[in-house]
Amino acid sequence: MAEKQKRYEALVHVYNKELYRFAYWLCRDPHIADDLVQETFLRAWRSLDSLLDQKAAKPWLLTILRRENARRFERKQFDYSDVENDTLVDETSHSLDDEMEQTVIQRQIALLSDEYREPLLLQVVMGCSGEEIAGILNLNKNTVMTRLYRARNQLKEALSRDDEQLKGASK
């Protein structure tokens, strides 16, 4: 029992922040992200015995979290319907310039389609390798690589478009 508790606490401490960020970018709502992470760890606790290899913990937790996220669309609509307008409070930026730029790229990331955004989040936020992403998303590795390439390309293009618009506006 104590052993299980210890393993669990270690998992929570290692992964809670990354999973929260991943969850946030999946649903783009701080409250839902919080709920998703809570629910993920609760389920993880209940089936911790099935996690034999500690090294597999990250993909295992991500699989639980993605399933939980999919499940919320099956639930009653009213649960979350009106928190969607909650805005993200960015406490990390210091100058106004930083803040504006962050918002532009954050908006562009949010605009990526799920099939491109998710591999990118797994790679950048969760630090997953191509093989791990392929395993979690049930895709082959080449597809994952193509999507990662396209995700970044779309971001680059969108940002340079925004740049040009800004320059145009200031003329």
């Binding site: 809670n16 929260y20 960020r21 990390t92 954050q106 970044r152 971001l155």
Partner: peptide
């Protein structure tokens, strides 16, 4: 990109 994704955690 990483900095943009790095939102504050409660």
């Amino acid at each position: 990109i990483q900095d943009a994704l790095d939102i504050p955690v409660p």
